[in-house]
Each structure stands twice: as C-alpha cells, then as structure tokens.
C-alpha cells in the first residue's frame, strides 16, 4: 500500500503546486501508516522532493513526454499505481492537473474528488472536504472505491519541509501513441500568470477605461503580481478574457488579492474567495466587496493607487 503523488515540473523545475501535493501526500501517508511515492517526468533534480517528504521518487526520463500529454501521463500513473499497490493518488489543481486527474479516474475506475482543501475528515469511511458551489460552500464527499483520487485545491494546504527517505528509482513506462499532437505552446513572456502568482492585482469598471490600466500594471510590477480584471471589463473588451477572474473566469487562490474599482458582485467574489488576504479599494463605501475583504480603503483609485505604488517602492527598497 502507498500514497502516490504526481510532482509536475515546468522546464525541468518543480512548481509550488508540485511541492504542495508532496507535502500533503506525506501527511496523508503518515496518517495511513504508509509511505509516500512521488513520480516525476523529466525533472532536473528529482531528489529535491525528499525534502518535502517523498519516501520513494520514481523518475521517468522520456523525450516523448516533453509536452504534457494527459492521456499518456494517465497511463504512466496507472502503471505506477499498480506497481506500488497505491491506495490514494493525489494530483494538483493546475490546468494540467485538472486535465489529468479525471482521465486517471476513468482508467482505474477510481472515485475522484476535486478541489479538496484539507486532509481527509475520516479514513474509514474515506471522507474529504472539497469546495463546491463555486467557493460558496464546502461538500463532504465519501470516496468508496479501493483506489481513491484526490485533486488538491491550489494554495489550500501549503508547502512543508520535512524529511522523506528519498529513495530514487528509474521507471520506463510502456507508452502507446495517443493520437493527440501538441502543435505549439503560446505563453506571454515576462508576465506572471494568475495561476502561479502569489499576489494578484485586479481592476474593475471603476477604472473608467482601458487607457487607465497603467495603474494596475504598475502596482502589479512593484508587487511582482499578476494582473486580472472583472467580468464587465473583459466583456467590454478593455482587457483580454484570459484576465477575467470570477465564477465563470479564472479562479484565484493567491496569498494577496487587491481589487481596485471592483464592486464585488457575488460571481466575482466566488471566483477569488480562495485568496488568503483581500484588499479592496473603492470609492463607494457601500460596495459589497468590503463585506468580504480583510482590508479596505474608501477612496478614489486615481489618487490612492499612485500613492500606494510610490510607498510600496520605498518599502521594497528598504526591505530588500
């Protein structure tokens, strides 16, 4: 019996998501009295995972798996799960993780719960707490199959350093062509993605027009943050729709979320509620966003934000 996690790399390096699933997997393995196996594909330094609790690190080096082929990786995961007699598989909630987990579930006929926010509530029966109703509630879900799959919500558990045995083992999976070809990858260079950002700065209609987005970008630059926007802003074409955050846009689970000129409609709040700390700057003291924010400033963005940028620059230069 073992707990298995997939630790994904981006250009050979582990992302925070990967370290988070390893940290979670280790705690779960301890509770189950078993060990944690992590598998990783084309990683530069797989041994790093031992510092987050991996007892066994299954490393796969295969040029055919350079691009993320979810179906092929699901086949790899199934082979390792069988070999390791795995009872619980943990996958992160990145775009790739959300693509992968259901395929493994289908392949192994294993019950899957996505958006899980903490360690299981009970082991017998196996019940997990997951986000539902677009962050407006939590559901307790029992997984009753022999193999259980957990999709761990982003930034919900945290990354913990601990000691794992870190025994490394090479594995050559059997691969068959999936018929899905990756043609190209388009990534905005030099921009931090909303998914990866620790801090997200978001603008709403209160900014009055796309010409004023320099304020959001400058603030994001000082904080090393990603930029985002509300739904009306993307619908109006002020910003590209890949910046739209909210219930039907991108979910945000950052450490700090700063909303400027966003009123805080229920759909917007649902999408960003998983963020740990929320700061709201709005001219309207009655804006509903203040009810769910941690810190608020009632004021004109065009006066407050330039001052905030300036003060943050001073703060950064003193604290670096």
């Amino acid at each position: 019996m073992s707990v298995l996690v997939f630790a994904e790399v981006s250009e050979g390096k582990f992302k925070k998501n990967a370290l988070e699933v390893v940290s979670y997997g280790k705690k779960l393995a301890e509770q189950l009295g078993t060990q944690l196996t992590a598998f990783t594909i084309n990683a530069e330094t797989p041994s790093e995972l031992a510092s987050y609790g991996a007892d066994k690190i299954v490393t796969i080096t295969n040029g055919a798996l350079t691009s993320f082929d979810a179906k092929a990786i699901a086949a790899v995961a199934s082979q390792i799960a069988q070999k390791e007699n795995t009872k619980v598989i943990i996958i992160d909630s990145s775009a790739n993780g959300a693509y992968l987990a259901p395929i493994i579930s289908g392949k192994l006929a294993a019950g899957f719960a996505s958006n899980v926010v903490e360690l299981p509530i009970s082991m017998e029966p196996f019940v997990v707490k997951r986000k539902a109703f677009s962050n407006k509630a939590f559901q307790h879900t029992e997984i009753s199959t022999d193999i259980k799959i957990i999709g761990l919500a982003k930034n919900a558990f945290g990354v913990f350093e601990t000691v794992g045995k870190g025994q490394e083992e090479d594995f050559s999976p059997e691969l068959t062509s999936t018929g899905l070809t990756s043609v190209s990858i388009q990534k905005a260079s030099g921009k931090i993605s909303i998914a990866d950002a620790e801090i997200v700065v978001s603008g709403g209609r209160g900014l009055k027009g796309p010409e004023n987005w320099g304020l959001i970008e400058d603030l994001a630059a000082v904080l090393n943050a990603a930029t985002a926007c509300s739904k009306p802003v993307s619908d109006l074409g002020w910003r590209p729709h890949n910046e739209h955050v909210g219930q039907t846009g991108k979910p945000v689970a950052s450490n700090l979320y700063i909303a400027i000129g966003v009123s805080g409609a229920i759909q917007h709040v649902a999408g960003i509620n998983a963020s740990k700390v929320k700061v709201v700057i709005n001219t309207d003291p009655e804006a509903p966003f203040f009810k769910v924010a941690d810190y608020g400033i009632v004021g004109d963005a065009f006066e407050v934000v330039p001052k905030l940028i300036q003060k943050l620059q001073q703060f950064k230069s003193q604290n670096s």
């Binding site: 294993a110 939590f138 559901q139 009810k291 769910v292 941690d294 407050v304």
Partner: peptide
Amino acid sequence: KTGSKGFEKPEENAACKMVAADNIDGL
C-alpha cells in the same frame, strides 16, 4: 464511486479593517 455526506458554509469573514485613504503607510 463517491457520495455526498453533507455540506457546510464557509465561516463568516471577520469585519473588514478600514484604512483611511491618506494612510497608505498604515495599509
């Protein structure tokens, strides 16, 4: 393969701390 065992609502947010617009250092 799975079954719902019930629901819970998120805890109410503690009251928002308001900071004056001219107190950026405070924020």
